[in-house]
Design a binder for these strands. Structure first.
Lengths: 137, 137
DNA sequence: CTTTTATGTCAGTCATGTTGACATTTTGCC
DNA sequence: GGCAAAATGTCAACATGACTGACATAAAAG
């Protein structure tokens, strides 16, 4: 069930992303950078749990095409704090819109209590539920 | 959240599979064949929604190594009805065991009502909820 | 007898992950 | 001041699992 839900949940954004030559990996970066503006590369690596080489490719494309901006950290100039450009923000909203529609439909079909149970159970399945505190999806 | 839960949910079976030189794709085949013994290749393709070329590689490895058996259909001899061998069944149980433990933990943490809401909401998120009637996960 | 169906197979490509090695800039500590 | 450690970037090679397109075979269906 998780497999099907995840596949269908990502299918609409995937189509949009493909139009830009992007994939699901780009979506994840856009998503997390959008929710944590100013985050560092290593924070992002920690969340995604992938290698920096994997991230680098995706991130470079997003920066090159003007979806994500990098700025040296104030206190620590080694860091590259990441944020979405206005172009990136617009794109993120377009991606999320589809998923919100889907969630809304699920909410309508299953009811608020079911959705609350859904959240709770998803968090319990996940190894590190500390990530779930800020409205991630 | 779906992303994290799916990743963590599959992490333990993934480790087991890697020991046999298998991947997540093999797990899905073993899972569905185990739940629908005697299913045909095209039924499996329909469920997984991948191309036959993608399936072929995975299926061939599973058959070659004696996890899955093929038998010509009785009425239609073109078909190859798929089923797990005893070796395949034992492996499937080993894989599922880990996930059941995780589900049990989630059940304990979130409560039965939450888990029921979880099921309901997952089905509502999925495009074709007809798949969810037989205790799939 | 011809077409369609179920399946298999060859060959090439793409997206996303991996390891390992090495470079650059900046920070922090003795 | 100097040097190790940290944050990041980059090159190269490789694995997995998806894709497309083309073609082959056996059996069923008309």
């Amino acid at each position: 069930m998780l497999f099907f839900a995840y596949r269908d949940f990502t299918s609409e954004p995937d189509a949009l992303l493909a139009g830009q030559g992007f994939g699901r990996a780009h979506h994840r970066v856009i998503y997390f950078v959008g929710r944590h503006p100013g985050m560092t590369v290593s924070e992002l690596l920690g969340i995604l749990r992938i290698t920096k080489q994997s991230l680098a490719r995706v991130l470079r494309e997003l920066v090159d095409q003007g979806f994500v901006a990098q700025a040296p950290g104030e206190r620590d100039k080694r860091q590259r704090r990441l944020s979405l450009t206005s172009k990136g923000l617009a794109f993120e909203r377009a991606l999320t819109e589809r998923q919100l529609t889907r969630i809304a439909k699920a909410y309508a079909a299953a009811g608020p209590q079911a959705v609350e149970g859904f959240r709770k159970t998803l968090l319990a399945i996940t190894d590190d539920p500390s990530l779930g505190r800020k409205g991630m999806s």
